[in-house]
């Protein structure tokens, strides 16, 4: 098989035949934890800026 054909074959193998979307389903109970952590993080950052800026 010529090199060019080999490349074409490889190219064919690379055709996008997988899923269009890979979404990330939420696990129950983690959303409130996320919001709590984000709030604490922002407050901590604000405190650090206030003390150091």
């Amino acid at each position: 098989m010529s090199k060019h054909k080999q490349h074409r074959k490889h190219d064919h193998a690379e055709k996008e035949d997988g899923p269009m979307i890979l979404d990330h389903a939420a696990v129950d109970g983690y959303r409130p934890i996320f919001y709590i952590c984000i709030t604490i993080g922002i407050l901590y950052l604000a405190f650090v800026f206030w003390r150091t800026w």
Binding site: I21, L22, H24, A26, V27, Y30, R31, I33, C37, G41
Partner: peptide, 21 residues
Amino acid sequence: FFSALAFTLLLLAGIYPAEIR
């Protein structure tokens, strides 16, 4: 570690953006 925590929580909370082709 806070970045890792943020990634984990975003993923578990279902907020992390989906991978879209």
